Amino acid sequence: MALQKDEIRKIIENKGKISFRNNPSGRQANISTGITDTIVETNYTKSSLTVNVGSNEIIVARADNSNTDNNCIDVQTIDALATAGSVRMPGYVYTGNFSGCVFYLYRTGPNEVTGVHAYSGSQPVYGKNGFFGKKKVIGQAVREFSPQDYFKRNPAQLICRYPTRQELDLSTGEQSLSFLSCVENNTATTYLFSAKGAGTGAQICRLIRAYHVRF
């Protein structure tokens, strides 16, 4: 299967639309079996990604959980966790709702890639309170819920790590950031773009970065 990375880039650069069919509120629960860890958790949906250059649209259509030939996954966002999902290569990894979180790709099998949406945000900092040593919140600090320790204990090849802090420009109407990675057998072309809107579709605002790595 040839991935349509050039057509996808054209649609993003032309400020097209990314549309979701039966997603995120599909008929089935998200796939959440597999990885279970204090920080890393499986949480994604299987999807079929198609491209319509004529209508300037990227379409991510929800697939059944039992589907074995889906070409895309949509990794969900959960506060204070690194959420992950896997797809066969060649395939697409999409994940949205970034405003400072970190995107990872790992090769987790001969023909499998795993995408991770690692939450990164302000978390309470605790200190001791008085003679009895009770904990209390003494401040806030940015913390990334990184999957790297998990994948050291469960060996996988790190393909890339892309942070997004300070990439979102709220002053122009942007509401969130998204990654769409086109992963082939030994290369990954990943687009970071901003968008506005929610529900069944979002209007793309701008292409922020285009990354290309060989692994």
Rank of each mutant, 00 (worst) to 15 (best):
M1Q: 14
A2N: 07
A2T: 10
A2G: 01
I8K: 06
R9M: 15
I11F: 00
I12S: 10
E13K: 13
K17P: 01
I18P: 00
F20V: 09
G26N: 02
R27S: 08
A29Y: 02
I31C: 00
I31F: 01
I31N: 00
T33S: 13
G34H: 01
I35F: 03
D37N: 04
T38A: 13
I39L: 11
V40D: 00
E41D: 09
E41I: 15
N43W: 04
S48M: 00
T50Y: 08
T50H: 05
N52F: 05
V53D: 08
G54H: 03
G54Q: 07
N56W: 04
I58T: 06
A61N: 04
R62T: 10
A63E: 06
D64P: 02
N65T: 13
C72D: 09
Q76R: 03
I78D: 02
L81Y: 13
L81D: 03
A82C: 12
M89A: 04
G91M: 09
Y92Q: 08
Y92M: 11
V93H: 06
Y94V: 14
G96S: 12
N97M: 14
S99A: 14
G100S: 07
C101F: 11
Y104E: 09
L105Q: 09
Y106P: 01
Y106I: 11
G109F: 14
G109Q: 10
P110I: 12
N111V: 15
E112W: 00
V113F: 05
T114K: 09
V116M: 08
A118R: 07
Y119F: 15
S120E: 15
Q123N: 11
Q123L: 05
V125G: 01
Y126E: 13
G127N: 09
K128N: 12
K128T: 06
N129D: 12
G133K: 00
K134C: 12
K136V: 13
V137F: 04
I138G: 02
I138Q: 05
G139R: 13
Q140M: 14
A141Y: 02
V142T: 13
R143C: 09
P147D: 11
P147E: 06
Q148K: 15
D149T: 15
K152F: 14
R153I: 10
R153V: 03
N154S: 11
I159S: 08
I159D: 10
C160M: 15
C160D: 05
R161K: 15
Y162F: 15
L168P: 00
L168G: 01
Q175H: 03
S176Q: 07
L177M: 11
L177C: 04
S178M: 14
S178T: 05
S178Y: 06
L180C: 09
L180M: 08
L180R: 01
E184L: 13
T189A: 12
F193D: 03
S194I: 10
S194Q: 02
A195L: 07
A198L: 15
A198F: 11
A202Y: 03
R206I: 10
I208P: 00
R209S: 05
A210T: 11
